[in-house]
Every structure is written in C-alpha cells, then in structure tokens.
Design a protein around this nucleic acid. Structure first.
Lengths: 140, 140
DNA sequence: GTATTTTTGCAACAATGTTGCATAAATAAT
DNA sequence: ATTATTTATGCAACATTGTTGCAAAAATAC
C-alpha cells in the first residue's frame, strides 16, 4: 500500500519522508472523505501540527489534494482523483458536509448553475456545497 | 434609515439596543456584500468583538442574516433579502468570493446541479461558491 | 561518505471562535 | 414613574486554527 504513496511522491518530485508517507496513507484510506489538520493530528502518532500544516499546503500546491470547502470553518483536504497538475486544480468540486458528525466527502458529478454574475466579474473556481445529514447520521 | 433597522428588530422580537441597531445599519448599507465579525469591528466605534459575535449569531438564528460561505475560512454574514423565518433559511445561496480583495457578495439566481448523492444522504442546504476576481480587482 | 538541499520540529504569535459571569440596559409590571 | 424582571453587554479567559522564522535533522546529490 505504501507503494501507492511512494509513487505519488515520486511523480510529484517530493522527497520521501515519513510524515508525507503517513499523510498520504491517511488520504488513501479516507477515500472520498476530506481530512482536516486536526483529523491528521488524531490519526498519526507523534504529529507536529505545523509540519502537517505545511505538508498539506505542499500537497495542495502539487495537485495531490484539493481543499474541500464545506463551510465548516476549518480547512479540509481531499485526494484529487483525476490527477490535478501543479497550480491547475480541476475546479468545480462538489462536497457534502454532514452537520451532524461534521464529515465532509467529495461528490461525483458536475455543477451547472443559472447564477447571474455582475458585470466585470471573473470566475476561476466553482464550489458546490451540500449540507445535511449523511447516511450514518440518519435518524431511523 | 434607522427606522428600517428598528422595524427589523421589532418584527423579530429583538430588543432595541445600540449595538444591534448599528450592526443592522452596516448590513443595510452593505447590501449584497457579506460582513465578517472583523469587518464590523472596523466599521463601528467601540465594538466589543464578543458582543458582535453574539449579535451575529442571534441575527442568524432569527433569520435576519445568513452565513455567506465562501471558503475564506472566516465566517461572513449577509442580509437575507426575502425574509427568512426562524430556523428556516431560504437555502440555495450563491456567493461570489474575490480572492484578490477578499470581498464576498450574494448572487441572484438559483442553483441546479447534477451531483450524485450517495444513498441515505439528506440535503438541507445548498451553497454555491464562485471564486475569482470581482469587477474592482480586474486587471485592465 | 561527504556536501547540499529540503524538511522537520519548536517557539512564538495573530486571528477567530467560544463560554461564564457580573454589570448594565431594556422591557414589563405595578 | 418606579420597581421588578428579563435580556444584552463587556470583560476575562481559554481553545482552535492559521502562520512565519530558525536551527537541527533528514533526504538526496555528488
């Protein structure tokens, strides 16, 4: 499994360090689930939160992860599935945020909107955030 | 102009206090622009940030303002145009966030999406965030 | 195996979010 | 109007997150 992490690091010309491998493992395990800095702090053994913070920034910059905007206030990241290149994230991300357990996951599918943009405004990225309760938090 | 603010307070059964009036004035002036706690701290004279924080929470709860999710990390609020009732915000908000000046504004128009929601997930609110540069920050 | 580059871990600090509590202010009751 | 009651304010205090600088440690290059 670490092969996959190693491969990602190599492909993005990042040094193979313990922290980076561990963080990547977490993301690979998480699948569509987005992870915050503190999620990683909880998951790893002796994490230094500043290192994690910088690791995430590096990964984002390299196009390994993308920010999962969910309105929760804390920054979360999720694995980019279709390889995003450096500084060129595939935009138009949709995320679901469960305001019960706080979980955020990436959704498939594209966004189309009939929103009126004032003149002179230039759009670079679109985020679609769905809020509600996830399957696990459903009251039967 | 304060009449409008007073009217809003009365309609929502909120006590008419100096802070609330001032905050409402700011929102009425701001129009479609969303305001953060620190925006209000800058705009008012002797603001207590905790009071502002609580004022905003109260206003949100009463349906006077709604959170303008923009991925900026800080919570911003904007006036609800069509009266939202308590705990029943009119969902489906679209916001534009300028990552140059940081400004966030409410957009008109509705959102439709072709996003695939996993089974068992229940959506309560939708947010659509457009990121880019606003008219003021456009390079000529 | 050594030199060079990059990453890590720590200190330190800023901004924001949040709660408890005594005082002050606003409304209700007399 | 005055007092009683309810609610809001302002302060202290603290948690969390975001962020930068720097020396030591680790990873790659030579």
């Amino acid at each position: 499994m670490t092969e996959k992490a190693l491969d990602i690091l190599q492909r993005h010309q990042l040094r193979n360090t313990a922290v980076r491998r561990q963080v990547l493992e977490q993301f690979l395990q998480a699948g569509h689930k987005a992870l915050s800095n503190s999620d990683l702090e909880d998951a790893l053994e002796n994490p230094d939160r500043i290192t994690l913070y910088r690791t995430l920034k590096t990964f984002e910059q390299k196009g390994i992860v993308h920010q999962a905007i969910d309105g929760s206030g804390t920054t979360k990241y999720a694995l980019c599935q279709d390889e995003c290149s450096e500084h060129e994230h595939h935009d138009d991300h949709a995320h679901f945020h469960c305001h019960d357990c706080g979980k955020t996951i990436c959704l498939e599918g594209s966004i189309k909107s009939a929103v009126q943009l004032p003149e002179g405004f230039q759009v670079q990225q679109k985020h679609f955030v769905l809020e509600g309760t996830c399957a696990d938090c459903q009251p039967e």
